[in-house]
Computed example of a mutant assay.
Amino acid sequence: MNNKGLDIEALKESLLDAALLHVVFDGWTPAAFAAACEDAAVAPDLARVICPGGAPELAADYHRRGDRLMLARIAAEDLPGLRFRDRIAAAVRFRIEASDRELVRRGAALFALPQHAAAGAALVWGTADAIWTALGDSSRDINWYSKRATLSAVYSSTVLYWLGDESDDAADTRDFLDRRIEDVMRFEKFKAQVRENPVLGKLLAGPLRLLSQVRAPEAHNDLPGKINRQEQA
């Protein structure tokens, strides 16, 4: 098949847009993918070339589209004047507001399956990384990992809460998010107290020395669970 001259990214965006109309009813399934091909007027054989992962790959693209919308809103909002914890909360809210609840519900069901769990975890990690990077995180040591792991847990639990939230304007979700961030702040305060304690400091000197050697990955291709498409070719 000669794909010269085709705008692959544009075709894939068209497939995604078309799929969203069917995912609400069929989930991120082969049936939704086939319907998207028909609606977008993309031949099935060509669709498998530009989107070899089928519906699950489109689900991942939808998640990453939400990340881009979130980053655009972070850049447009006046966040520097807020406390740092409030900036994080705002970013998580922006990310949730960039998504359709039913599409996310369908995606959660997909990425809960064992064969897609690693990809789902990588997407959540990518969202946490995008937030920290957008907010100016410059850590390159073990804190690079701990910040993203903690925020991944906060984001995931908040999304799950939001999926069942029936309050006006998702007010209960905002309160839930604030409580989760407060829990994280308490934990960070506890860690600081442990480091400053002379007795515990001596006991943990060895492990802390080892952890100090950990460095953040040099390239985002090293993110946990991320697939290098060049290696698959």
Rank of each mutant, 00 (worst) to 15 (best):
D137S: 14
R101K: 13
L123W: 03
L113A: 15
L163Y: 04
A90R: 12
S157T: 13
W132H: 11
L151V: 03
A121K: 12
R85T: 00
G164A: 04
D129A: 15
F111G: 07
G136L: 05
K147E: 13
G136S: 04
S99Q: 13
G120P: 09
I142Q: 13
R87D: 00
V124N: 10
I131W: 05
A112Y: 09
A90C: 03
W144V: 05
T158N: 04
S152A: 15
Y145V: 03
G164S: 05
Y155C: 10
Y155D: 09
L103Q: 02
W162A: 09
R140P: 06
S139A: 15
A149I: 12
G120M: 10
L123Y: 03
F84A: 00
S139R: 13
L135Y: 06
T150C: 13
L103Y: 08
R105D: 03
G126T: 02
H116Q: 15
A112V: 01
V92M: 01
S99P: 00
A128D: 05
L123I: 04
R85V: 11
L103G: 02
D129W: 13
S138C: 10
G126V: 04
A118G: 05
R101A: 11
G126A: 10
P114H: 08
V92P: 01
S156G: 10
A153T: 13
K147G: 09
I131N: 04
S99H: 11
K147S: 12
F94E: 00
I142D: 11
T133Q: 13
D137W: 09
A149S: 14
R140K: 10
G126M: 07
G126Q: 08
D86P: 00
T150P: 03
P114D: 06
D168E: 15
D141R: 03
L123N: 06
S99I: 00
R93N: 02
A171E: 14
A128S: 15
D169L: 12
H116D: 09
E102F: 07
D100S: 11
P114Y: 10
T158P: 07
L123A: 09
G107L: 05
V92S: 02
F111C: 08
W132Q: 07
G126S: 13
A170E: 11
R148C: 08
I96T: 01
H116K: 04
L123Q: 07
I142S: 12
F94T: 00
A117K: 14
V104L: 10
A91V: 01
A112G: 15
A128Y: 03
Q115T: 09
W162I: 02
I96D: 00
V104H: 02
E166A: 14
S167Q: 07
F94V: 00
T173K: 04
A130M: 06
S167E: 07
D165E: 08
W144S: 05
G120W: 11
V124T: 13
I88H: 01
T127H: 10
V154S: 02
A122K: 07
R148P: 08
T127L: 13
Y161P: 01
A149H: 12
D141C: 02
F176D: 02
D168M: 12
A109P: 03
R140T: 14
L103A: 02
A128Q: 06
A117T: 07
W132M: 12
V104W: 08
I96F: 06
